[in-house]
Design a protein around this nucleic acid. Structure first.
Lengths: 364, 364
DNA sequence: GTACTATCTGAATCATAGG
DNA sequence: TCCTATGATTCAGATAGTA
């Protein structure tokens, strides 16, 4: 769980009707853990919402108009990305999904705003729509960008949960998932309710990877509410912002009809192995497991050795320092002294790593 | 074949030493059919990285990848992209490869310059380097952008060749190919000659998809010349531009030592779509296990033989078709081409069924 | 020659708590 | 902000060496 959000000020688990640029300005800054955004592809598509004559809008072949189109889209993009950045916690992360029509604009602008890209992910569609005219490659993927607000801040990544989800191997940046079809596709009067409904499997992986139960998930282009539905089922809090009243209504009904969230044990992701309490090397002396003057050997077989001083420093060829420092002096590079140094078992005469003695302390 | 290039003015099949921004300015405009560009990625790596076994990762720290910031990188990008655009024919296409470090800058800028994106392609690596610290997703892909100079112009896309290469299914925007390792990786004194050498299979697919024999292929960041080597083997003309004299020398030697290009019939792409076996025969070509123009023998001892075309079809006595179709043409009845056709082992001279190579791929 | 093992490596924005 | 100590962390494939 992340640090406590000022959740009293947040309209949690609600769909808010409005343009995300204005709505986001009303929310407290540094209050959201994760933002998932599925923005409109370009200005032309946005225009389609207002003007019925799609073909005219689509026939932008004049170079100036084209540039004009990019300019307007870029401005829109910069506005909603800035507004998102303000409400994110420093270690909060942004996910944006798009295609080649818009993702290069979005990616460049979010970098300019100071977002730090952690990965880009390709959603490889197992069942994409073919290219009917045979003039290009089948457009079989979409791209997600995962970025943190502040490069130096600690972000949430449930590494072990992802590894577990991927059958014991590290989760990779290519996700092979089917598109949303069949019963999962929301319909109104037989027609699909939203033209770009994302599959819940995609959001499941995003939220499981980069948030914890109780975290606040915000979606500035909520549409029919896939992100909210998955957040609800995964025990996350959510905020949806959507401009279209019809979508808002569909999303509200969709989420209201969900079963109650599973209990918390089911939601807990594969945890990181618990951090072991820190034990100082000197503790081994105090416990009598090693004594001053005793010899430690570098490696299980090598001949190099050092003497333990009463203050738990090692003495080696006139040098003096911690088990880590002396190990690095012998073999430059990152060294964990606990694994480098061996003591001689007084009974068997065998060498054992001093890490065994530390385990002994920890278990006691 | 595209319209006639003013090839007299072009320095064909040569590596030119110099900065591509200056060199491109000396070439005639509207003269090049396809540009493949693998620009510096601007990786911005910080400290050293070690594997869990404490071995050090040999990072990309070449001088050519150092930029002061996004501003400098953007300016550099705009300059080389503009210079490329000038020499391209109106229907010529540009391919650029990159990762999230740079591809959003590059993609945005090329759109601003008037390039029209046709597809983006993800090269999904079958054997990427893992994320050793477990703090992100394994970075398992790179992105290629395919764009045409003039949106209204006719560009080259060998749809049926791609379909044939993909075993009768439309070629998709996700390409699953291994990275360049082992013997294929050029070395100097045991060290890799170039830190970012691309696999030939990737260039093979690019050039087969978007160019025709005789076309002029230009690479402004030639490096050790993978694009030129593949162009040569596919019967395309090529121009390489490279700043580093060492890379230039390596590339020249590499291409000079190639076998002669196969004849033109072998290179002609299939005019008609065909049916699909389970494993694509074309994969053997992409993997470099067989090459265009190579001879296959019908049976382990017979004298009948056929030539392999670049799009993985066979040519036999003026007939053209899949390994199965041609096998049936020779011996009517149900035939499994994988078991009928034999290749000659280059070392032992023995004939072996191509099914061995399929097994090799399957095991790999 | 074969089978098995050990070693090496690849475009990577690769840690964090505590003093 | 910097420094130090401690701990957490890898997959596929090729090659070389050994039995």
């Amino acid at each position: 769980m992340s640090e406590q959000p000022p959740s009293s000020a947040l309209p949690l688990n609600q769909v808010i009707l409005g343009d995300c640029r204005q709505v986001l300005a009303t929310l407290p800054k540094n209050s959201v853990d994760l933002i998932f955004a599925d923005p409109p592809y370009n200005l032309q598509l946005r225009g389609e919402l207002h003007r019925p004559d799609l073909s005219r809008v689509d026939r932008v072949d004049d170079e100036w108009d084209q540039f004009e189109g990019f300019d307007t889209y870029d401005q829109f993009t910069e506005e909603w990305l800035s507004a998102c950045r303000r409400v994110l916690k420093p270690g909060g992360t942004l996910w944006v999904i798009g295609t080649y029509h818009n993702i290069y604009r979005v990616g460049g602008i979010l970098q300019n705003l100071g977002f730090w890209i952690l990965n880009d992910i390709v959603w490889v569609k197992t069942n994409p729509m073919p290219n009917f005219r045979g003039v290009r490659f089948t457009n079989a993927h979409e791209t997600l960008i995962w970025a943190v607000k502040d490069r130096r801040a600690k972000y949430t990544f449930n590494y072990h949960a992802m590894k577990s989800l991927n059958d014991g191997l590290q989760m990779r940046s290519d996700w092979h998932l089917p598109i949303c079809t069949g019963r999962k596709r929301l319909r109104v009067n037989g027609e699909k309710a939203h033209s770009t409904q994302k599959p819940e499997s995609l959001l499941y992986r995003v939220l499981l990877a980069a948030s914890n139960p109780g975290d606040v998930i915000l979606d500035p282009f909520f549409g029919t509410g896939t992100s909210g539905a998955v957040a609800q089922q995964l025990g996350r809090q959510w905020i949806g912002i959507e401009r279209d009243p019809q979508y808002v209504e569909i999303a509200r009904q969709r989420i209201a009809s969900l079963p109650a969230a599973p209990d918390e044990t089911a939601l807990r992701a594969t945890p990181n192995p618990r951090r072991q309490p820190r034990i100082a090397f000197g503790t081994l002396l105090e416990a009598g497991l090693l004594r001053p003057g005793q010899t430690l050997y570098f490696g299980a077989e090598g001949s190099r050795s050092a003497q333990i001083s009463a203050d738990a420093s090692l003495e080696y060829n006139g040098q003096r320092g911690s088990i880590h420092q002396i190990a690095r002096a012998i073999q430059p590079g990152p060294r964990n002294g606990w694994l480098c140094w061996f003591y001689e078992d007084p009974h068997t005469g065998q060498r054992r790593p001093i890490d065994h003695l530390r385990q002994f302390i920890r278990n006691a």
